[in-house]
Nucleic acid binder design. Structure first.
Lengths: 186, 186
DNA sequence: ACCTGAACACCGTTCAAGT
DNA sequence: ACCTGAACACCGTTCAAGT
């Protein structure tokens, strides 16, 4: 006499991600998720330990999708073009998921380290090609720091002083592409 | 027969900021703030419109203090040294306020635009000296994007792959100092 | 094995009543 | 003018009882 499963963890995570994107993190109530998957709120606890765990799963889902997009972007083999492509793909992903995107970098819940690692693989590869193997890690971190910082500020509306956001992005991309070389730091 | 004020907006904001720093944003309950200032929770609504407004005031308080620190840091007149000093001061501020710091850049509440502007004044001045007046804005945005991104990732623990965080910071600071020049982007 | 209603503790907020 | 207790709606979570 077992009761048939009326939902699944993936359905819960997908519904949760949609809600976060539409209503913000504050709108992610267990009630709203339960309604979306057609179940009562207490049943969700058969799928996720608690709300915090659900947020982490959503962050993992985002990180996995971002990793796919970045892998797809770096394909030419030319380090400078690949760097520009990765940067554009990253920014496009953030623009496509403006509300949920901060989950990727907020300390609070944060995706699992493994999920983040997968996302950084493409960047590490480009950084190695551009800056050299021995400088790959600091070069990648500098690039990722700039890209995440830029997009976060852009989405937060911190650039309202002047409309030339595209100019600032292009300036930064060019600076990264031209400066991420071994001799640039000595 | 007026009742004497038993607290003040600044006391509420200060107490709130302490609580955020100690317990995280989730620990910032109206109850906890009320306890800290010695009043009942409903009385707080004579000082702040609601919890969201309190969070914004805390963010403003942080932004003002950060602006002070950055102004204090850029004093040598040498653009490269000033840039390094501003970068260090920014990072030191974040390390001193690791839990509350994200409030400065989170879209959710965010400090008022004016408070943010004051914080960026010192950076804009250094960027103008370094990159030239006509490139000051994109140069400042690139620098701020890198610095905020780096510190956010550092505080979020996203750098756990290798302990060489200092190396990555030094690499980034040097890259910024050497690359934020007009010819670097053409 | 999963689902549910009922219940609990907690939280933000409002408001009438006090001084 | 500010403070308070009481009350409301809402939320996360637990659990015994159903199938």
């Amino acid at each position: 006499m077992p009761a048939p499963a009326r939902t699944s963890t993936t359905a819960v995570v997908t519904a949760g991600r949609t809600i976060v994107e539409r209503e913000g993190l504050a709108g992610l109530t267990m009630q709203a998720v339960a309604d979306a998957v057609g179940v009562r709120a207490p049943s969700l606890y058969k799928r996720v330990r608690d709300r915090a765990a659900l947020v982490r799963l959503i962050a993992d889902d985002l990180a996995a999708e971002l990793a796919d997009q970045l892998d797809l972007a770096a394909t030419t083999g030319d380090p400078v073009l690949d760097l520009r492509a990765v940067a554009s793909a990253f920014r496009a992903f953030a623009h496509a998921n403006p509300t949920a995107y901060p989950l990727l970098f907020d300390p609070r819940p944060g995706p699992s380290p493994e999920a983040l690692d997968r996302s950084s693989a493409a960047v590490l590869a480009v950084a190695a090609a551009l800056a050299g193997e021995d400088r790959a890690l600091p070069a990648a971190r500098t690039f990722v720091a700039w890209a995440t910082g830029f997009v976060s500020m852009e989405l937060a509306g911190a650039f309202q002083l002047g409309g030339e956001v595209e100019e600032a992005w292009e300036y930064g991309v060019s600076l990264m592409a031209e400066s991420l070389r071994p001799q640039a730091t000595d």
